[in-house]
């Protein structure tokens, strides 16, 4: 049995995903094989509708593959119960979305504390970590504000902080800069590098941004539901 630190964080084997539509079944992932090593920054590109978000959803356990195997930290998530998958997300995965998805009814600070509360680790150390993170993303002064009072860039930085607050092993980001201007996009990518690299966290980031590709250790391309080598057309 390999040593945990050498074990891949995530392994996808022959993963297929289909959606049943009104009059047909549409397969969006056609047998994906992928390994994410610990500490790796992987960037995933592809055209709209190529299955990028579906891959993130399957990997995070918020959706189930139609076929194939999803191993997270050595555990087969494709056979795990809803409760187990939820628990895995709570403890080991951080998610960042294109549209921020901060809870509008919680303040910025409370949004950060929520994952800790769900994990049952909302203690003084957790609160300190949340404040440190807010400080690190430059939002300490805005921590008592509600999301609708913040700009898009500020909201996304808060969303990144929320994804990291419970110290996840794997961060999945679905077009985190897709809704931001260049300046804010740069700031968010900078956060990933500053906050994840030193602690050896793994990142899989879906993006259309050229700049985002530069922070990846490798760039993967999803083309019509198949993972293949990076081609120039993927950025279109």
């Amino acid at each position: 049995m390999p040593h945990p630190s050498h074990q891949p964080v995530a392994v996808l084997r022959g993963v297929k995903k289909s959606y049943i539509e009104v009059d047909r079944t549409r397969e969006v992932l056609h047998g994906i094989d992928l390994e994410l090593a610990r500490g790796e920054f992987a960037v995933l590109v592809g055209r709209s509708g190529s299955g990028k978000s579906s891959l993130i959803h399957v990997l995070s356990g918020i959706d189930m593959p139609t076929e194939g195997q999803v191993l997270l930290f050595g555990e087969d998530m494709s056979r795990a119960s809803e409760e187990r998958r939820t628990d895995m997300r709570r403890r080991k995965i951080g998610l960042v979305f294109q549209f921020f998805n901060l809870l509008p009814t919680l303040t910025i600070e409370e949004n950060l504390l929520l994952p800790l509360e769900l994990c049952g680790t909302l203690d003084a150390a957790g609160r300190r970590r949340a404040l440190d993170l807010l400080d690190a993303v430059g939002l300490a002064d805005l921590r008592a504000k509600f999301p609708d009072r913040l700009s898009g860039g500020e909201q996304q930085r808060a969303a990144v902080a929320r994804a990291l607050v419970h110290d996840p092993e794997l961060v999945l980001a679905d077009e985190p800069t897709g809704n931001l201007d260049d300046h804010n996009a740069h700031a968010v990518l900078d956060l990933f590098t500053r906050l994840l690299r030193p602690s050896g966290k793994t990142l899989l980031m879906v993006t259309h941004s050229a700049e985002a590709e530069t922070i990846g250790d490798r760039v993967l391309e999803l083309h019509d539901g198949r993972l293949g080598p990076r081609t120039r057309s993927a950025r279109a």
């Binding site: 995070s60 939820t86 709570r90 403890r91 998805n101 769900l118 994990c119």
Partner: peptide, 16 residues
């Protein structure tokens, strides 16, 4: 629904 979807995504159980 969407807000609830986010809650589920960040780890809230169906019971919660």
């Amino acid at each position: 629904e969407r807000e609830m979807g986010v809650l589920r995504a960040i780890g809230l159980s169906p019971g919660g």
